[in-house]
Design a protein around this nucleic acid. Structure first.
Length: 125
DNA sequence: GTGCTGACACAGG
DNA sequence: ACCTGTGCCAGCA
């Protein structure tokens, strides 16, 4: 859709679907890799991770978590700064409350009403 | 065409 | 709580 307008020109179609979902996650809220996978027709959570690994620049990647509410491997410190800045609810865990409270912050859009308008310019990573 | 690579999920130990 | 192995699949060499 709107290939000429999307900032992801040249990105494979399946990957674009992933990026569009991530770009729509509201500030202060989160989704899991598995959630995104289901929203785009379940290509598997690992595929979502692969896509973000390549194209996460310019997207709020920190709002995509692993099961249980933990940020991506190796990016915990970076993600934590965003959570504090956005007021994302955290759970007191073993490691300084790095885990996000999924029960509070999980984004569950009602897709029966269609997707919300794309935020055009996503947050700059 | 084949085979490897992953910002993961899940089940065990 | 942690680490390991297995399954999954689009992209890429």
């Amino acid at each position: 859709m709107r290939d000429t307008e999307t900032p992801w020109a040249g990105v494979p179609s399946k990957a674009q679907e992933v990026l569009e979902v991530v770009a729509r996650v509201p500030e202060g809220m989160v989704v899991t890799y598995g959630d995104v996978a289901e929203m785009i027709g379940d290509r598997g959570p690992r595929f979502v991770g692969n896509v973000l690994g390549r194209y996460a620049a310019g997207l709020p990647w920190w709002r995509v978590l692993r099961a249980g509410g933990w940020p991506p491997r190796g990016l915990e410190a970076e993600a934590l700064q965003h959570y504090r800045a956005e007021g994302t609810p955290l759970v007191r865990g073993t490691i300084e409350g790095l885990r996000v409270d999924l029960a509070e912050a999980r984004w569950e859009p009602d897709l029966s009403q269609g997707w919300p308008d794309a935020p055009e310019t996503a947050a700059v990573g």
